[in-house]
Amino acid sequence: MSLDQNDIAKLARLARIRIEPESVADLQQRLGDILNMVDTMQAVDTTGVDPMANPYDAFQRLRADEVTETDQREKFQAIAPSTEDGLYLVPKVID
């Protein structure tokens, strides 16, 4: 599997990571190497094999829909880059 510059641009977009133009060629090479390595999987016939997400095929437990956490907004927002009146601030989205 090889990736072209458009693939890298698309992946960077999906992953929300800015990539400097001078890093694209290097990333193309390294991601291509990794994908070539993982592509050895494709030779294996897995027809009829159920995908395994958990080693014991366990399901995530559900808990009762009850309030169990206390309000710690101030503590949690104390470590935020920017807040005001209990809200997280980001650059203006709509003019």
């Binding site: 890298i8 992946l11 999906l14 992953a15 991601l31 999987m41 897995t46 395994m52």
Partner: peptide, 30 residues
């Protein structure tokens, strides 16, 4: 970290999910 995020993004992206993530989960069972 950026490399792995991008490999993972690729494996989960539309059109590649079955060939990568699902395939890997099947091999995980084997």
């Amino acid at each position: 970290v950026k490399r792995r995020i991008m490999v993972g993004t690729y494996a989960l992206s539309a059109g590649f999910y079955d060939a990568y993530y699902r395939k890997a989960q099947q091999i995980r069972r084997l």
